[in-house]
Design a protein around this nucleic acid. Structure first.
Length: 414
RNA sequence: CGGGAGAUGUCAGAGUGGUCGAAUGUGCCGGUCUUGAAAACCGGUGAGGGUUAUACCUCCGGGGGUUCGAAUCCCCCUCUCCCGGCCA
């Protein structure tokens, strides 16, 4: 959630920032009004409560002194009656405010480039040259057919469309990649975690998936539980409603989980192959950082993900997202896009974001800064998406006959 | 899933209708003493909102109720522990 006090005191500045994310001034003015209304409603209610409390105290005193309470009782009853509409008003004001505030995206950093969509993203650098093939490289689903790696039909039979089954070497490759990623992250100081794949609504709200993106989630029937769309949710919320000590920071976590997404709204996109599935595996990095040091942590995370791709010999580029392409919770995001020779294009394989204090405010994650509590910064990033790495290895390591080499660093894992 | 017990501050643990945001111990921070440390002694020490700062409001697992007044009484839920069932 954005800082409503900041919005109130620096409205024009805040409005300019959010324009990058496509939020119009009117919506923000509404939010500001709702905030003011809540404060007014609370002031009225609280002073009525204060009066009620002091009269109740007096009541106790009268009882002890055996004084007559009839008159006081009448006053206190009247005040109680008068409080009912004030309570109602405050409750409504709060509800109205949070309905809007929780749906408001994070402020992008000032450094984020202007732009409407992914075409306006800025390429920062390329790492490794794509190798040239002396034959026409195939797409991964063609290679899958030759090698019997991915069973699309039976995945659909078992669940529904956009589910698949990995078989034999492909499944072993997946397992090897997960281990390779976790080990590499651990070497950089990320502590491995094995977390629940189902989280409750409070946690999903903490990281920003709820209430706005409920349609993208698989919900457990009759329970307050959802399949996680990313390990960012359980890992970040490890510290939900907690106060850390300064010396605990930064907390660096990594974990492997499957991720479940309804992919609502992406009908017709990437229907072929395993680029976009309802269930996919991912190894995630999450950092809980001191607000003054989150930029360093961010750079380290980007570098780590890039190094993993380099170690696998996968050409990729580093891209800074423009305002219009930034996710809901992110203040700044860098994507790593891996080269896919079969598709002849770069495709996202990792996305690393600094959400600043946006998630921390929602999830109430703070640390002791001297005497005061201060919101931490939370960061997350893939290192890496497993399914897409398999695709990248298939396409980059293919031979003319359709056979696939295994990258050197993975051999000890297989 | 069935039976029993419980949920209070860092932790342990009092508190069963008002003077309780909460005894006491412990931990932590600061001080005195000491060459230094320990011990002893003194002081401080939960969170959120609000205020220039005070006032003031809220929080004793969560939600609702009774009452002028609830940590304390009533109802529902969640969680934890013990016993049994089932089970990787």
């Amino acid at each position: 959630m954005i800082d409503l006090k900041y919005l109130q005191n620096n409205f024009d500045e805040a409005s300019n920032k959010l324009q990058k994310k496509g939020v119009d001034t009117e919506t923000l003015e509404n939010l500001q009004t709702l905030f003011t209304q809540l404060k007014e409603a609370n002031v009225a209610l609280e002073s009525a409560k204060a009066e009620q409390n002091s009269m109740s105290k007096l009541f106790g005193q009268y009882m002890r002194e055996k004084k007559d309470t009839t008159e006081l009782k009448a006053k206190v009853d009247a005040n109680k009656e008068a409080m009912i509409p004030l309570q109602e008003r405050a409750r409504e004001a709060e509800e109205a405010l949070y309905a809007v505030a929780l749906a408001m995206p994070n402020f992008p950093d000032d450094s984020v480039p202007e732009g409407a969509d992914e075409d306006d993203n800025v390429e920062l650098r390329k790492v490794l040259e794509p190798k040239t093939f002396d034959f026409k490289p195939k797409e991964h689903w063609e290679l899958s057919e030759i090698n019997g790696w991915i069973d699309f039909e039976r995945g659909v039979k078992l669940a529904k469309s956009r589910f698949s089954v990995l078989r034999g070497e492909a499944s072993r490759l997946e397992r090897a990649l997960i281990n390779f990623f976790l080990d590499t992250n651990a070497q950089k100081g990320f502590i491995e975690h094995s977390v629940p794949f189902i989280n409750n609504a409070t946690m999903l709200q903490g990281t920003g998936q709820l209430p706005k993106f409920e349609d993208d989630l698989f919900k457990i029937e009759d329970e307050d539980l959802y399949l996680i769309p990313t390990a960012e949710v359980p890992l970040t919320n490890m510290y939900n409603d907690e106060i850390l000590t300064e010396k605990e920071l930064p907390v660096l976590m990594t974990g492997y989980t499957p991720c479940f997404r309804k992919e609502a709204g992406s009908a017709g996109r990437d229907t072929r192959g395993i680029i976009r599935q309802h269930q996919f595996n991912k190894v995630e990095m999450v950092a809980i950082a001191h607000p003054d040091k989150s930029d360093e942590v961010f750079d380290m995370m980007v570098q780590n993900a890039s190094d993993i791709l380099t170690a696998l010999g996968l050409p990729h580029r580093v891209v800074e997202l423009c305002g219009g392409d930034l996710g809901f919770s992110a203040a700044t995001t860098i994507d790593l896009e891996v080269w896919l020779p079969g598709q002849n294009q770069y495709r996202e394989i990792s996305s690393i974001s600094n959400t600043r204090d946006f998630q921390a405010r929602r999830a109430k994650i703070r640390f002791k800064d001297g005497k005061k509590n201060r919101l931490v910064h939370t960061l997350n990033g893939s290192a890496l998406a497993v399914g897409r790495t398999i695709v990248a290895i298939m396409e980059n390591y293919q031979n003319e006959d359709g056979s696939i080499e295994i990258p050197e660093v993975l051999k000890k894992y297989m």
